[in-house]
Amino acid sequence: MTRRDELAANLADVRARIEAACGAAGRSPAEVELLAVTKTFPASDVALLSDLGLSAFAENRDQEAAAKVVEFGGLRPEVAARWHMVGNVQRNKARSVVEWADRVDTIDSVRLADALAKAAARRGRRLDVLIQVSIDGDPARGGCPVPELSALADHVAGTGELFLRGVMAVAPIGMNPAGAFSVLADEVYRLRRDHPAATVVSAGMSGDLEDAIAHGSTCVRVGTALLGGRTLASP
Rank of each mutant, 00 (worst) to 15 (best):
H155P: 08
T231F: 03
R230D: 11
H215P: 05
I107W: 10
A214F: 00
S217R: 08
I18D: 08
F57I: 01
H215Y: 13
L232Q: 11
S217W: 04
K118G: 11
L130C: 15
M205S: 06
A47L: 04
R4F: 03
L127Y: 06
E71V: 11
G142A: 01
P77A: 07
S206I: 09
D105T: 11
A203Q: 09
L226W: 10
V32T: 05
A157Q: 11
I107N: 06
R111V: 13
E59S: 00
P77M: 12
T231D: 14
I18F: 04
N60V: 07
R125L: 06
L184C: 06
D13E: 15
L130F: 13
N88M: 14
M1Y: 00
A66W: 00
T40E: 02
Q132K: 12
L162R: 00
V183P: 03
T38Q: 00
L227T: 04
T2E: 07
L34I: 07
A115S: 12
V37C: 03
R3C: 00
D211C: 13
A9C: 06
R122M: 10
V14N: 05
A185P: 05
W83E: 11
M85T: 03
T199S: 15
L116W: 06
F41I: 01
D102P: 08
R165D: 07
K68V: 09
G229H: 15
P172I: 02
A47M: 01
R126H: 09
V69D: 10
P139D: 08
G142Q: 06
V129E: 05
T159Y: 04
S206D: 09
R91Q: 09
L152E: 06
T199P: 10
V70R: 14
L35C: 00
V200T: 14
A225Q: 10
I135R: 07
A12V: 03
A65W: 10
G74T: 09
A25N: 02
P42R: 10
E19C: 03
G137D: 07
C219V: 11
R230A: 14
R126M: 13
D128V: 04
E71C: 05
H155I: 13
R126C: 11
G23Y: 01
D136L: 03
D128T: 03
D5A: 13
P42E: 05
L35P: 01
A153Y: 01
A25G: 02
S109R: 15
V188K: 12
E19S: 07
V86S: 03
L11A: 10
A225F: 05
E33S: 14
E59N: 00
R126G: 12
D105C: 15
A21H: 02
V183G: 01
D62M: 07
L75G: 06
C219F: 09
A81M: 04
G223C: 12
R125V: 05
G74E: 12
G87S: 14
L52G: 00
H215A: 12
D128Y: 02
V129S: 07
L75W: 04
N92W: 04
A214E: 04
P145N: 06
A30L: 02
R111W: 10
T199Q: 15
I18T: 05
